[in-house]
Simulated assay, not measured.
Amino acid sequence: MSTRSARTPNGRRRGSSGRNTTFSSRPAEDLLFPTRRGRPMERSEDYKMWKALLKQAGVREARLHDARHTAGTLLVEQGVHIRVVQEILGHARVTTTERYTHVASPQVRDASERMGAALWGED
């Protein structure tokens, strides 16, 4: 196995042991955005593409990491099981996924409305 390592989306290095395999040992079809040669994309190139995409879409500046949070939150709010979201986001522990997602479920909204009504007499 290769001793080279690559940076994960959070900037940490992934080694070649355990769950975190090196990107260089992964087949190209496992990479979300491989280069034409099937290698991992450089972070700077990824960043440039992200900024261009935001501009083209006409949306405000945001970090790519913010998009991950949004994706996780939307998946949970759509009823996707937290373990599936964990797998999609690539988290080793479900507790990371739980912290990562910001959910305002219908139950939470209902509880908020009830508390507001109890405190301020709002419907």
Rank of each mutant, 00 (worst) to 15 (best):
S2M: 09
S2T: 09
R4D: 08
R4S: 07
A6E: 00
R7T: 13
G11L: 05
R12H: 14
S17L: 07
G18R: 11
R19D: 05
N20A: 03
T21C: 09
T21Y: 02
T22C: 03
F23Q: 04
F23S: 04
S24Y: 08
S25N: 11
R26S: 04
E29P: 00
F33T: 04
P34W: 06
R36F: 04
R36N: 07
R37Y: 05
P40I: 02
S44K: 14
D46R: 13
D46S: 13
Y47E: 14
Y47W: 15
M49F: 06
K51M: 13
A52K: 14
A52T: 02
L53T: 00
L53G: 00
V59D: 02
R60M: 01
R60P: 12
R60W: 00
E61L: 12
E61F: 15
A62V: 08
A62L: 12
R63E: 07
L64E: 02
H65Q: 15
A67Q: 14
R68I: 08
R68Q: 14
H69K: 03
T70K: 15
A71H: 13
G72H: 08
G72M: 11
L75V: 02
E77P: 07
Q78P: 02
Q78F: 09
G79P: 08
H81Q: 10
R83P: 04
G90V: 07
R93F: 01
T95C: 01
T95S: 11
T95M: 07
T96H: 07
T96V: 09
T97D: 11
T97N: 03
Y100A: 07
H102K: 14
A104P: 00
A104G: 09
A104I: 14
Q107A: 15
V108K: 08
R109G: 05
D110C: 08
D110Q: 13
A111N: 13
S112E: 01
R114N: 11
M115W: 06
G116C: 06
A118D: 08
W120V: 14
W120L: 12
G121V: 05
